[in-house]
Amino acid sequence: MKDMKLPMRFRVLTLMDEHEALSDQEVFDILKKEYGNEGQYRMSTIKLHLHSMQASGLLCASDMTLDEQGELIETFKITDFGRSRLSLLPKNWDPKIIG
């Protein structure tokens, strides 16, 4: 069967557009259904995608706090600039087919 999935980084951007804001852990959990059986499905990869898109201005920080262990929990949201890049999505791509 033809693989209709987007490159994972592009999929993260579409997810951010579908939600008001998401933390790295939430992105990781949502993507499990689509990419969970692939070697690239790691928290470190998701975090790298989020931070790279943040540095490039496609995402921005929405909120941040520390958990009980003192670990940073960041929440991101898409910017208008990031939303403009969704025009590069393949025309036949539909998240419902994947989901």
Binding site: K5, L6, P7, G39, Q40, L88, P90
Partner: peptide
């Protein structure tokens, strides 16, 4: 291949950024 990104080749090539 060993970092689990082999399938990303085809996916990336089907997009305009690719």
């Amino acid at each position: 291949l060993f970092s689990g990104k082999f399938l990303e080749y085809g996916r990336t090539l089907r997009t305009k950024p690719g």
